[in-house]
Design a binder for these strands. Structure first.
Lengths: 220, 220
DNA sequence: TAGATTGTTAATCGATTAACAATC
DNA sequence: TAGATTGTTAATCGATTAACAATC
């Protein structure tokens, strides 16, 4: 791709959605010692056509080599930079309920370069407890902590009705992105990014899909 | 929409993705006592253009009324049927770790018509325990339970390396859909539906978005 | 009835696929 | 070099938006 200087290049939403999957499989291939891979082979793995895969990658640079394919490590490093996880970033979490605790104990995102620096709650019974080596802090200490520890992501695992307030506190404290698990659509300023994990919506989609298949199987 | 008899009508993937959000807000509006809503107002809520909202809904029937808009309760009932949640459906869960326990304690999907009938694990220390009133059962009892209790959805919250096997056991037992939280792409027969909750992928997308915004703000 | 708003067709926009020259 | 495979343009396909007749 030729980058036209000075212009803001917009990456299609559909491309952005696929990048994490590419990255996940590159990590795996790297661990498995795979050295190179063609767009055809890799496309089969990530369930995307070979031309589409090449198109997607070429939004960010020319990482392949004609007649050879893609070097797995090189592509992994390139994509890590594209996504912004080539160096660790710090997160804080608000809401030490069941889901919050599950995330505190998770190893999955830690392996991808995200460090959960601190967790907060409003409940005095939880404050002071230690979970997986992380102390639960008082929500009133949030701003101080975020400003002093280079935190740029906030995770929201509070109940529905507390989510908007938690988001506002995170933003006031200076985080740049919010990973939201509460089943609400947060109202946020444009310069803050959000990613929602509306788990129940996935379950409804599953229900819809099952219904369609069942119908089809009944030839109805 | 005029339904051409005998033909299999394919609903665009993009439409399916939006339905759960429509449903979530209809539940809320219904609770708030809102009686009717226009495509313009509702579109603003779900962040979709009015014509798109009408297009989407008209894939399933004509639920509105000219000059009036949509009756909230009528639309809620109609969409519930479309999604397949007009009556309760039974689920089982495999993997009573941190995330599994968080789901067992969740009220969110229960309110939308999903009943967690039983949970299973392989760990003898967990088997026999009761969490939120649900007994943890031995994974070897899975098939018997599923067949005897009209279960059609299986939830997978086991570690990465155990997920494929768990999926196969669920399918052998007869579930029609899998709600997968393990960070792997399951290999499944075509007549079984899957919905993945690859949480870390959401976090990577967030990282990418933050990076883009930061760049932009720096005028670089 | 008059005003409002749907349902639906046609036009536009964006994303995917096909094809192939470039080149390792 | 010859074979393989990329990067990229053009063609196709699908999804969104605009527009408006139908109608409550």
């Amino acid at each position: 791709m030729i980058r036209k200087d000075g212009e803001q290049i917009v990456i299609p939403a559909a491309v952005i959605k696929r990048l994490p999957k590419y990255h996940r499989h590159l990590v795996r291939l790297l661990h498995q010692g795979v050295e190179k891979i063609s767009s055809r082979e890799f496309g089969k793995i990530v369930r995307v056509s070979a031309p589409q895969l090449r198109q997607d990658l070429n939004h960010f640079g020319n990482f392949g080599q004609q007649g050879y394919g893609y070097n797995v490590e090189k592509l992994y490093i390139a994509l890590s930079k594209v996504i912004g996880i080539e160096k660790k970033s710090n997160m804080v979490l608000i809401g030490v309920g069941n889901l919050g605790q599950a995330l505190i104990n998770s190893t999955d995102f830690k392996r991808r370069g995200f460090h959960l620096a601190a967790v907060f709650d409003i409940n005095p019974r939880l404050i002071g407890m230690t979970i997986n080596g992380i102390k639960v802090r008082d929500i009133t200490d949030l701003a101080d902590y975020v400003q002093g520890h280079n935190v740029n992501i906030g995770v929201i695992t509070v109940p529905e009705n507390a989510a908007q307030k938690a988001a506002e506190e995170l933003i006031a404290a200076g985080v740049k992105g919010i990973w939201n698990f509460a089943p609400v659509d947060l109202d946020l300023p444009k310069d803050v990014s959000v990613e929602n994990e509306h788990l129940t919506e996935g379950l409804l989609r599953l229900s819809f899909k099952i219904k369609g298949k069942t119908k089809f199987n009944n030839k109805n």
